[in-house]
């Protein structure tokens, strides 16, 4: 499906743009989650085969030549793992944001210059 591929790339670019230009820490995390969604859409639409159905082989699928009727199951499994890991990464990033805010009382990334050279 070419449209979803284009959509995934556009979301990825918009998310990167947001991560690079915004100053607010929470906005940067939001940009990260948009990039995440875009990447997942790209991977799933690469695995899509037009005119075929989901890889769940119940009575509506002919079991004798099942491999000719279903889409690729491996991208689905990969993306499923990636979404769960994405939640874990987001939770960790947000708890760092909370910790930074409690330390310096600011959300702007310009106030954190300890590692700048």
């Amino acid at each position: 499906m070419i449209f979803s591929l284009i959509l995934g790339f556009l979301l990825l670019i918009i998310g990167l743009y947001g991560m690079l230009t915004q100053k607010n820490l929470i906005k940067i995390v939001i940009g990260f989650s948009i990039v995440d969604t875009g990447t997942h859409i790209i991977i799933v639409s690469i695995g899509y085969l037009s005119g075929k159905t989901a890889p769940i082989l119940d009575s509506t699928v002919d079991l004798a030549n099942a491999a000719k009727q279903v889409v690729d199951p491996i991208p689905s499994a990969l993306v499923l793992t990636a979404i769960v890991i994405g939640l874990a990464v987001t939770a960790l990033m947000l708890s760092f944001v909370i910790k930074l805010y409690q330390k310096n009382k600011s959300l702007s990334i310009d106030d954190y210059q300890e590692l700048k050279w």
């Binding site: 499906m1 979803s4 989650s33 969604t37 997942h40 799933v44 639409s45 695995g47 899509y48 075929k52 159905t53 989901a54 890889p55 769940i56 889409v71 991208p75 689905s76 499994a77 993306v79 499923l80 979404i83 769960v84 994405g86 939640l87």
Partner: peptide
């Protein structure tokens, strides 16, 4: 895109 597992995960987690 025929990936109901991913759809359910995205609805629940994302």
């Amino acid at each position: 895109l025929a990936a109901p597992d991913v759809a359910m995960t995205e609805a629940a987690i994302g």
